[in-house]
Design a protein around this nucleic acid. Structure first.
Lengths: 193, 193
DNA sequence: TTCGTTGTGTACTTCTAAGTACAGAATATG
DNA sequence: CATATTCTGTACTTAGAAGTACACAACGAA
């Protein structure tokens, strides 16, 4: 195998740039010309490296999912009361749920609610992401079940937290005040008792 | 003023058809040719009646908002405990949060999370809708404040319900089981005590 | 140095969809 | 009935974006 001419760009850099653009403007509204302009990588190179636009987006989304899942794993594996680590996890989203950054919301949720994106692969990626996230919460709540009241249901609670998480990031596009987001998190945490 | 040639279609019928298509496929993926094909109304007539595609979508969205707000007003004005009417209101969304219909989610939330739709008018319409909806909840909770525990905060609770509502409709695209949605609603209702 | 291989960049094709020009149809009014 | 006015339908223009052909550049190996 020859090495021949080497790549003149780092694929990961391009994925990062593409992520920013897709996240900001959405899948449809982001053209490959936009990505070319922002990255300096011409279209034929993009196609050679990532496949077509759908395939590129799928790679971007998977990378996004992995990032959040990795962070969630770290936070939710910390010692201490389940309640504290889960609150810490939710609190970590506040910058993305409010103010300036909130405008973009969550790339995954934005994609899930985009009716034009119903490729099977994408749906599967999003579904797997949500399943894994919920499983992290559920596992932790089950493990620390003794910390809660009698009759506490870890499974339903894990799902409720997922719903709240999705809701905060869906409403993020209105750029709510971070205090309001915090108040909601505090109130929801009262379910963990 | 002459009447001249009358319209050959009912604008409200067209808005209804357009709503279905925008709701199903999203704004970008729905072309005016699609709407023409589904409604039988040719493009020049659409432009004359509604303006361009953005203006048409805005009318569709406003109509959608009005429908939901009208229904919410009726339900939330009913007599009885605030808790019951709010539960009834949330429960009414279950068909749109699960199963077959859930695929589409909520047109307003889908639009809010669509990065390609950042016309000012649209943002304002969505923001006003959310503000009104939250105000209906807040007003009812304030009025019936005596039904709850000491220290109950109607304002934060109203917003939390909005977040849960948004979360359920954002996750609707995964077509969850309706039992799961009901369990979440039940758990959240425990905050109204 | 020369060749085979693979990446790069320009320029192209193709397709889709928004928006419109224009001729003709349908109506109220005189 | 004639006419001004408004709506309708066909067919067009235009713009943008996905995807690609092809010539050229950069590298490893002989």
């Amino acid at each position: 195998m020859d090495m021949a001419r080497p790549r003149s760009f780092d694929p990961d850099d391009v994925l990062e740039i593409a992520r920013q653009m897709f996240w900001q403007k959405g899948f449809q509204a982001t053209s490959l010309d936009d990505i070319t302009a922002a990255s300096g990588v011409a279209k034929p190179s993009l196609y050679a490296a990532f496949g077509d636009k759908n395939a590129l987006f799928l790679k971007v989304l998977d990378r996004y999912h992995d990032g959040i899942l990795g962070w969630a794993e770290r936070v939710l594996a910390q010692p201490g009361p389940a309640r504290d680590v889960i609150r810490q996890w939710l609190t970590g989203f506040i910058p993305y749920c409010s103010g300036e950054k909130g405008q973009r919301g969550c790339l995954s949720i934005n994609s899930a609610t985009d009716g034009s994106l119903d490729q099977v692969e994408l749906r599967k990626s999003i579904e797997r992401y949500n399943r894994r996230l919920e499983e992290l919460l559920r596992t932790r709540l089950r493990t620390d079940r003794a910390q809660f009241r009698k009759g506490f249901d870890p499974d339903v609670t894990a799902h409720t937290i997922m719903v709240v998480h999705a809701g905060l990031l869906a409403l993020a596009h209105q750029r709510p005040d971070s205090k309001q987001v915090k108040a909601v998190i505090d109130q929801v945490m009262s379910l963990l008792a």
